[in-house]
């Protein structure tokens, strides 16, 4: 072995380093600050547990939000005699009502035991309330859509058709009520938890999720070819609210407690989501680029749902966020 072989060089380096720094840290050995660890809390371990949810849940937030608010638009459209639009919106709502439970069940640790959620009705559990809202939504949407289609296609005539029209209007209104709750309760679901970056924004979250749902529903209908002023107005409304929330979020900062919203990759997801649903969608609408505004809003609404779950994972794993949240 010659004295300048790589292994000998490495030993020389170590000797130099030991002489210079007084210590040579190895991989996996924690020597910062000597024998006393300097991480926050207990060895930097999380104080609360981060959420175990995977992609299904943010996707469900998106689908449930858009589907639920589609029923709201359907109800308004039906009231003002836009039957075709009401039909398209009810189809969207129905699609959402079918996909939502599938996603929800896919995320369960034991999907086969899903039915156990229907054992109890628990007002103090947002998860339980959400399941019942979803059940009621499906119960209204599916027969509502059938009644509406039978009425619109004039399958029956006379009093039977009258009856169908009345049934449809009731069921669509019911769908709207449970749909608007389906779109907003998800904010309560994550807002009423022990995760600091979530519970500190428990008032903002339902506003954001609900409005993103409304905007997404309008955007989807516009992309399906229903380019009418009413939907454009709803697009403006949603983008304006989202822009206001963007400002709210950048003003209402809680330091280390909710830094997951402003730092890390999770912070970028939130920022991108907010810009796409807020200012960008607004500007595109101002320039009459409606399809682009719709696409921007939809992507933003989806990204931001993933962002909020990512925020929960970062914030829940960060012991300092819990300690900092105690001061609010």
């Amino acid at each position: 072995m010659t004295s300048n072989s790589p292994s000998e060089k490495r030993l020389e380096e170590l000797r130099e380093q030991a002489w210079k720094d007084g210590v040579v840290p190895g991989k996996g050995v924690d020597v910062a600050g000597g024998p006393i660890p300097r991480q926050p809390g207990y060895y930097g371990q999380p104080v609360v547990k981060p959420p175990v949810w995977t992609w299904e849940i943010p996707f469900y937030f998106f689908i449930g939000g858009a589907g639920g608010m589609s029923a709201v638009i359907a109800s308004a459209a039906f009231t003002f005699h836009h039957v075709d639009l009401a039909r398209a919106a009810m189809w969207l709502a129905a699609a959402g009502s079918i996909l939502s439970p599938i996603l929800l069940i896919m995320d369960l640790g034991r999907p086969r035991l899903f039915i156990n959620m229907l054992r109890v009705f628990k007002p103090q559990s947002a998860m339980s309330m959400g399941v019942w809202i979803l059940v009621m939504f499906i119960t209204c949407v599916v027969p509502g859509l059938i009644a509406l289609e039978l009425h619109a296609l004039q399958v029956f005539t006379g009093p039977m058709d009258q009856l169908l029209r009345i049934a449809a209007s009731f069921l669509i209104f019911g769908s709207a009520i449970f749909g608007m709750l389906l779109a907003t309760y998800t904010g309560v679901l994550i807002g009423a938890t022990a995760i600091p970056a979530w519970f500190l924004h428990r008032v903002l979250l339902p506003i954001h999720f609900g409005t993103a749902g409304l905007g997404s529903a309008a955007a989807l209908l516009e992309l399906l070819g229903h380019r009418i002023a009413a939907l454009n107005a709803l697009g403006y409304y949603a983008a304006a609210v989202e822009s206001a929330l963007l400002i709210w979020l950048s003003v209402d900062k809680h330091g280390a407690a909710d830094r997951a919203i402003h730092e890390h990759a999770s912070g970028w997801l939130i920022r991108i989501g907010e810009i796409l649903t807020g200012p960008l969608a607004l500007v595109l609408r101002l320039f009459s680029l409606v399809p682009f505004a719709a696409i921007s809003f939809l992507i933003g609404a989806l990204v931001s749902r993933f962002g909020w779950i990512a925020v929960g994972k970062v914030s829940g794993s960060d012991p300092e966020s819990v300690f900092a949240a105690e001061h609010y």
Binding site: A76, M180, G210
Partner: peptide, 24 residues
């Protein structure tokens, strides 16, 4: 959180009704 959710839900319903009432 629920107060905010209900308020948002009702605001959305009103927005939808108003949009169809005034813009169609």
């Amino acid at each position: 959180a629920w107060t905010s959710a209900f308020a948002t839900a009702i605001a959305s319903l009103i927005a939808a009704l108003a949009a169809f009432a005034f813009f169609s």
